[in-house]
Amino acid sequence: MTRKYNFCAGPAALPTPVLERAREELLDYEGRGLSVMEMSHRSPEFVTIAENAEANFRALLQVPDNYRVLFLQGGASTQFAMLPYNLLGNGGTPNYLYTGIWGKKAIAEARHLGGAHVAASSEANGLTAVPRPEDIQLSDDAAYLHYTDNETIGGLAFDYIPRSDVPLCCDMSSSILSRPLDVSRFGVIYAGAQKNIGPAGLTLVIVRDDLLDRAKPETPTMFNYRVMAENGSMYNTPPTYAWYLAGLVFDWLKNDVGGVEAIEVINARKAARLYDAIDASGFYSSPIAPINRSRMNVPFVLADESLNTVFLEEAEAAGLLNLKGHRSVGGMRASLYNAVSEAAVEALVGFMSDFEKRHG
Rank of each mutant, 00 (worst) to 15 (best):
A191I: 02
A191R: 03
Q194W: 08
Q194A: 12
K195M: 09
P199Q: 08
L202Q: 06
L202P: 05
L202F: 04
L202H: 03
T203H: 07
L204M: 09
I206K: 13
R208I: 07
D209Y: 11
D210H: 06
D210S: 12
D213E: 13
E218M: 06
T219H: 06
T221V: 12
V227D: 06
V227H: 14
M228I: 05
A229Q: 08
E230T: 09
G232A: 10
S233K: 07
S233A: 12
M234W: 07
N236M: 14
T237N: 14
T237L: 13
P239F: 00
P239Y: 04
P239R: 03
T240A: 15
T240N: 10
Y241Q: 11
Y244A: 15
A246T: 13
G247E: 03
D251P: 07
D251W: 13
W252Y: 15
D256C: 12
V257M: 07
G258I: 04
V260Q: 08
A262F: 10
V265Q: 15
A268E: 15
A272W: 14
A277Q: 15
I278H: 05
D279S: 02
S281K: 10
S281R: 09
F283G: 02
F283L: 06
P287F: 05
I288G: 01
A289I: 07
I291M: 09
I291P: 01
I291S: 07
I291C: 04
I291Y: 06
S294F: 11
N297P: 01
N297C: 09
P299Y: 09
P299D: 09
F300D: 00
V301S: 05
V301A: 08
V301T: 07
A303K: 05
N308Y: 02
N308H: 00
N308E: 09
V310C: 04
L312N: 06
E313M: 01
A315M: 03
E316F: 01
A317I: 09
A318C: 11
K324Y: 00
R327C: 05
R327S: 04
R327D: 05
R327K: 08
R327I: 06
S328N: 06
